[in-house]
């Protein structure tokens, strides 16, 4: 397990250094995107429309934050990760089209995303589910909010972060997926548990 600290924009070369079980901290620009922002971004791409901000080399955070407005400024109150599997249907296209390097969320993602990450050079960093204050405190400022019509949780928040983490690298750019490995082990353990409890499978 190695600890890495990267600044955005992150290059493909840098991202390929990471292996599952490494820990990453990110400094720089990060955008939030949940289902609706993913859908809209991909629609824009299809129509040849530019996104409000180029995502190349940046981190995308699966997060529906609680923000508070003080005067003209947005202050993050709580900003923990949401379940990433919902974004599985969009993420391969998202990585391919926008060249994001880090996807941050909780719960892991599936085979399709793992393959796209290996092909285009990106990683999945698991941020501790529920650790919303830890996340909020690593956000230095809210640069802007795009697509606010989608509602506060679904909008695309552009954040400046400092040492955002710890991110457990759970999918690397070499086809490894820690969540799938754990799942496999769990299936094996299941038989031992059944035995211990005197159950037949």
């Amino acid at each position: 397990m190695a600890v890495y600290k990267f600044k955005t924009p992150i290059s493909e070369e840098e991202i390929r250094k990471l292996k599952v079980n490494d820990v990453l901290y990110i400094t720089g620009t990060m955008v939030t995107a949940r289902d609706q922002a993913h859908r809209r971004a991909l629609e824009h791409f299809k129509q040849g429309k530019a996104l409000p901000i180029s995502l190349e080399g940046l981190a995308v955070f699966h997060c529906g934050p609680v923000m508070k407005k003080e005067g003209e400024k947005w202050i993050p109150v709580a900003a923990g990760p949401t379940t990433s599997t919902r974004m599985d249907i969009f993420e391969d296209e998202f990585i391919k089209n926008f060249k994001v390097r880090v996807i941050i969320g909780k719960g892991g993602m599936g085979r399709r995303t793992t393959e796209a990450m290996a092909k285009y050079g990106a990683v999945y960093g698991a941020f501790t589910g529920g650790a919303a204050v830890l996340a909020a405190k690593a956000i230095r400022s809210v640069r802007t909010v795009e697509w606010f019509d989608l509602g506060m949780p679904e909008a695309m928040w552009v954040l400046e972060v400092e040492e955002f983490g710890p991110l457990a690298i759970a999918i690397d750019s070499h086809g490894n997926n820690l969540f799938m490995e754990v799942q496999k082990k769990v299936e094996e353990n299941k038989q031992r548990i059944y035995q211990k409890l005197g159950l037949s499978p």
């Binding site: 969540f179 769990v186 299941k190």
Partner: peptide, 10 residues
């Protein structure tokens, strides 16, 4: 004993 662990990371 499942091995799921904190956040499912083992």
């Amino acid at each position: 004993m499942t091995g799921i662990g904190p956040m499912g990371l083992g």
